[in-house]
Measured scan of single mutants.
Amino acid sequence: MSIQHFRVALIPFFAAFCLPVFAHPETLVKVKDAEDQLGARVGYIELDLNSGKILESFRPEERFPMMSTFKVLLCGAVLSRVDAGQEQLGRRIHYSQNDLVEYSPVTEKHLTDGMTVRELCSAAITMSDNTAANLLLTTIGGPKELTAFLHNMGDHVTRLDRWEPELNEAIPNDERDTTMPAAMATTLRKLLTGELLTLASRQQLIDWMEADKVAGPLLRSALPAGWFIADKSGAGERGSRGIIAALGPDGKPSRIVVIYTTGSQATMDERNRQIAEIGASLIKHW
Results as ranks from 00 to 15, higher is better:
150 L>R: 00
66 M>N: 02
153 M>H: 10
7 R>F: 09
71 K>I: 00
263 G>W: 04
223 L>G: 03
125 I>F: 02
24 H>V: 14
64 F>T: 01
102 E>D: 15
57 S>H: 13
191 L>W: 05
84 A>I: 12
91 R>Y: 06
135 L>P: 00
155 D>S: 02
259 I>M: 08
78 V>N: 02
282 L>T: 09
233 S>A: 08
103 Y>C: 05
94 H>D: 11
18 C>Y: 06
202 R>S: 14
282 L>F: 08
269 D>F: 11
64 F>V: 04
73 L>W: 03
30 K>C: 15
257 V>W: 02
130 N>S: 05
32 K>I: 11
56 E>D: 12
70 F>Q: 05
53 K>I: 14
229 I>Q: 02
252 K>M: 13
54 I>N: 06
19 L>N: 15
123 A>Y: 04
115 M>P: 01
221 S>W: 09
18 C>F: 06
127 M>S: 08
252 K>V: 14
255 R>G: 02
24 H>A: 15
164 E>A: 00
30 K>P: 02
60 P>H: 12
44 Y>N: 00
256 I>F: 06
97 Q>A: 13
204 Q>T: 14
199 L>E: 15
202 R>K: 15
7 R>S: 09
126 T>I: 09
170 A>L: 08
235 A>H: 02
119 E>H: 09
169 E>D: 13
107 T>A: 10
136 L>S: 02
63 R>P: 08
140 I>M: 07
110 H>D: 05
56 E>K: 11
64 F>R: 01
203 Q>T: 12
139 T>V: 15
226 G>Q: 09
136 L>R: 00
203 Q>C: 02
205 L>S: 01
63 R>F: 06
111 L>I: 13
262 T>P: 01
76 G>V: 05
264 S>R: 05
273 R>K: 15
281 S>T: 13
121 C>T: 04
268 M>A: 09
204 Q>R: 10
206 I>Q: 12
166 E>Y: 15
157 V>L: 10
187 T>L: 08
243 I>D: 02
142 G>C: 04
31 V>Q: 01
246 A>H: 04
194 G>L: 09
121 C>H: 00
211 A>C: 15
130 N>P: 00
77 A>L: 11
202 R>M: 06
286 W>V: 02
190 K>Y: 12
208 W>Y: 06
204 Q>L: 15
192 L>A: 06
210 E>Q: 13
119 E>L: 03
182 A>R: 14
262 T>A: 09
